[in-house]
Design a protein around this nucleic acid. Structure first.
Lengths: 188, 188
DNA sequence: ACCTGAACACCGTTCAAGT
DNA sequence: ACCTGAACACCGTTCAAGT
């Protein structure tokens, strides 16, 4: 709506957007305040009016990611009806988010690159808790919740880290089998 | 055996040891070649005679970590007899290593801090494969292998990242329940 | 062959000064 | 209130020069 105000109308938001774009393209490690500032057309000192440090800025970007991860998991619940499918769908959404935004995902869970995001962990847990609550459980609720998060997060992390090699063709099929394995167990 | 040779007898090994010590104490992020060199009593340029970059040095430290993680998993197999227990023990060893060396664990799987360690992923997989092979499976072998790695890695990562809060008292008990849940499934 | 000293380009952060 | 310009301390890396 507003054109380009001379003394930068909404620098705070623009800093977050620019940082996110660079993170998604190149990862959070080579990132530089100078590049972010240049991308916004301001001096290197300008970001310090809005964020106390580079880590604080990255922390806000990570928070944005947690919001979207939660939304993706929530959105996956709208289509399926059976409780078993819903857990698998939630896992697919979780891993799918990590695959679609590998650098952002790594930033979110890196803990040293960004500032504390203490509310994000519990919030993610709460989202998964809703999904698990619908299932008829053979183990304590807390155990089911933690294992569900762990298997989704493990598959996502190993994939993003290049440790598990998926060929793109069979990846979702395979992923569903792996998530289903948690429901029924792997032992005969 | 050898005292302190004047023109540094084994700087390469000393650089790795010093780096590892700093990583374990403070994490891999604030680390600086200047500090490593100073810790070894050499100039900042000296490490470049032995490593092509800071990342290459960190890559060697990560490789050391992968060796120890593999050894810890292997060692966990010597005490238990039943195949089911062996999988749980392997998972406990995996998570135990991550808990004991959180910063090293993060470096190993961070991919941006260190140079490629392409052999490490497959090697870790191979170690777990031996453990899974002994079990009577209800799912394809590959599925069992991947889910086992994923749940161990997920529990380890979330724990190291401060996402799952364990009180130290019940952590191993809880961990065993969670790993057992993968064997038998969480659905009723 | 291995290491030092000095240099280069660069980075995060601060702060007086401008508008 | 928000931003600039210049400065500070620091970092990874290179390279001629020393032993």
């Amino acid at each position: 709506m507003n054109g380009k105000p001379y003394h930068h109308g909404d620098l705070r938001r623009q800093l977050i957007d620019t940082t996110r774009a660079i993170v998604e393209e190149e990862g959070p490690d080579g990132i530089t305040l100078a590049r972010i500032a240049k991308g916004c057309g301001v001096s290197v000192a300008a970001p310090y009016r809005h964020f106390s440090s580079k880590e604080a800025l990255l922390g806000d970007v990570a928070g944005l990611g947690f919001g979207e991860l939660g939304a993706a998991v929530a959105a996956s619940q709208r289509t399926s009806k059976r409780a078993r499918d819903r857990i698998v769908d939630a896992g697919v959404a979780y891993v799918g988010f990590a695959t679609a935004h590998p650098h952002l995902f790594r930033l979110m869970f890196s803990a040293e690159l960004r500032d504390r995001q203490s509310a994000a962990g519990p919030a993610t847990l709460a989202g998964l808790a809703q999904v698990v609550r619908g299932l008829n459980l053979a183990v304590p609720f807390e155990t089911a919740l933690r294992t569900t998060w762990a298997i989704a997060h493990g598959l996502a992390s190993l994939r993003v880290g290049g440790m598990l090699t998926f060929t793109d063709g069979d990846s979702e099929q395979r992923l569903r089998e792996e998530l289903t394995a948690l429901l029924d167990g792997i032992a005969a």
